[in-house]
Amino acid sequence: MTPLSFARAADTAAAIGLAGAPGARYLGGGTNLVDLMRETIERPQALVDVTGLGSAIEDQADGGLMIGAAARNTAIAEHRSVRTRYPALSRAILAGASGQIRNMATLGGNLMQRTRCTYFYDDAAGCNKRAPGAGCDAIDGFNRIHAILGASPACVATHPSDLCVALAALDAIVHVEGPAGARSLELVELHRLPGGRPDIETVLAPGELITAVELPALALAARSTYRKVRDRSSYAFALISVAAALEVAEDGTIGDVRLALGGVAHKPWRARMAEAALRGGPATRSSFLAAAEAELVDAAPLSHNGFKVELARRTIVAVLGELAGDAA
């Protein structure tokens, strides 16, 4: 770990001010950044602790929910509004990491966590994300956990968050504040696909701080869930995960649907093609399968992760089937 300074921000404005120092980084719960610093993959010169900033989880007048970026994962997962109105979010958080890590990790930090690609983690390996221009050793290496959608010749890493997959499905809005002021953007717009610059992972400008995530009012979110498939039964990153919300009309057709995938891409993957295929159609296994196929038509598996295409297809169908209940 490189020598560095530390300051605790008293409020958002102070945080943004402190983050103006050379090599400064915001520090949440530290569950990812401290590990990466120890690996010398991250070498900040100054840490700005933002865990003392907004962490409230507040019901909004319009039926939505506002969650301060410093809210701990456990606090979000156990919050009654989340459990009852956005269960997919609660389930996604609970499927991630361990009890201890969920007690430490913040919402903002979760959004900013970095890939688990083992070539990214090994400074002896070529990695365009860690060292732009160094090449990608994962493409022809152990790529079982890597991307099948949206990858580039420069990078095949996946985003490791569970929480973000649920947020992507639930139309979450990210509120940020920076030297140039405050703005908000859709969660699905926050993370980038790798393209030629996998080292740039989000659209945040330097110094911009995630201050809150807003879940808009979404009736069908009460009927949402999250399923994670991994190599052991707990405490492992997703091979594939699916967050979904489904509304089936009385006539058995799909009124509305939200679907997002984890473990497939450089960002949480909102499955809009599948959603489009589903809307208005029958809530049947065959239409779920067709929707999955529609989303995965562009899947480009690598040497070891071809199974993810089939696994994603099956998991999508199973999750939608579960949400549809007897209707399917």
């Binding site: 688990r116 290496g141 152990f142 052991r232």
Partner: peptide, 25 residues
């Protein structure tokens, strides 16, 4: 233990990526 035959490098030198059974297993 993932041994990358191009480099002879062990690629999962970590308890996060080298999976041993957890309680739920």
């Amino acid at each position: 233990t993932e041994f990358d035959e191009r480099s002879g490098r062990i690629m999962n030198p970590s308890l996060a990526e080298y999976h041993v059974p957890v309680h739920l297993d």
